[in-house]
Design a protein around this nucleic acid. Sequence first.
DNA 1: TTGAGAACTTGATCAGGATCAAGGTTGAGT
DNA 2: ACTCAACCTTGATCCTGATCAAGTTCTCAA
Lengths: 242, 242
Amino acid sequence: MSKIDLNTKSCASCPIRPRAICSRCTDDELNELDKIKYYKTYPAGSSVVLMGDPMMFVASVVTGVASLSRSMVDGRMQMVGLLLPSDFIGRPGRDIASFDVTAVSELTLCHFHKKAFEKVTQATPHVQERLVEIALDELDAAREWMLLLGRKTAREKIASFLLICARRLGRKEGKSLLLELPLTRDAMSDYLGLTIETVSRQMAALKRDGVVVLEGTRKVTIPDLNRLLDEAGDDSDGAALS
Amino acid sequence: MSKIDLNTKSCASCPIRPRAICSRCTDDELNELDKIKYYKTYPAGSSVVLMGDPMMFVASVVTGVASLSRSMVDGRMQMVGLLLPSDFIGRPGRDIASFDVTAVSELTLCHFHKKAFEKVTQATPHVQERLVEIALDELDAAREWMLLLGRKTAREKIASFLLICARRLGRKEGKSLLLELPLTRDAMSDYLGLTIETVSRQMAALKRDGVVVLEGTRKVTIPDLNRLLDEAGDDSDGAALS
DNA sequence: TTGAGAACTTGATCAGGATCAAGGTTGAGT
DNA sequence: ACTCAACCTTGATCCTGATCAAGTTCTCAA
């Protein structure tokens, strides 16, 4: 995870350009965004926004991992989104955060003051367009997750999670696929609607059954992606590993 | 549920105007939409679109109830959205349906050919704007539902569902609130990630405890909304019953 | 090197909801 | 009035994942 130079004000060298909110921008539009952006780094575990807080910015994840989560008065909590580099935080047109945003690892965000961003948005159709796409993609992901939370078994949940990580973070190495998990077992349990013990046991079971190979606790090798797909219970839409 | 005259081509008398996709349209914009719309009625239980199908239209629910759902190869299924009058179906920019859409009751939709709709959209900022709002609202709702599916008990799930129905469909009568459930027990179980037996038992339990009064199987009276709020386990954000 | 805390694993037991299995209600059609 | 098919309820039992309770491993700072 190579650090980027946070002093570089230029978007030209930005590692997340291809997928980020600004991906379709012309040079002129980029200049506008350039003027109103600023970087900020959050330590692992720190809170970025709390539900109910006024939220005066929107941002893109540059490096690190953040979580979106919602909790109940008695402490039960459910992660409702995982934000990886290039993902977008916040929403134009809302002033109050509807969810907690937490830095899961050390996290660097590229912020825009919300008011200024909204102004630019209205003038630059490419940003508006990309915003709709992002919202609709997130909606698809959220609904996919609802199927997981409502109907999948613990083992299927773990397999599905590994699959999602593999799609975004995996590296091919020969026939198998290497992967470093972005979450602790505890965070995984929050994401999957399980307890940490169940996560641990099912990881052990998948390892025992040869579906994955573990090196330490975070490094995962997937020898056969189709096997994992089966375990996830999805209709096999062929692992679209870009 | 009074029928509207489906031959009336005019949007002027449309019952769902205030909330629908066209709510912000000027008369000129409305004329454009008017040209490309057509009504269609689906019998209860029939399928509107199947996941994976090409989807050449977008639509608004005019009367009746539709469900958005996703299912697994072995038959397990999860409802991921409930579409009531004024709700929007489909997404500009995607040609393939990502979910099943089913008529839960007899259902009338106001359709627009997708291509034509997209054309109009680009020319009418008010539709584009409303579309973003709708997508973001649905995203909020989906994430709220993820908390329910992942962390709530069966009783809390039922209470939460009744609350949502009360918000959209309830009628005040004195201090209490009358409500006709839009779903069968079976559909409720699909929506809540439960089995029909558990839904039935928990409804009985809420009745026994005086949280609700049942008349027949669909008619519900809620004598004390705050009591129901407690049972739902939400932070009491005061029942915003418009 | 050692110690302390965080992260993880493993085992024993429990319980909420699923599953299996009858019945009971309701309402449309004859 | 009777039949049949949805739809709903209720009871008995089972099982997955939660909970409770120790341990173990890893990281990292002193």
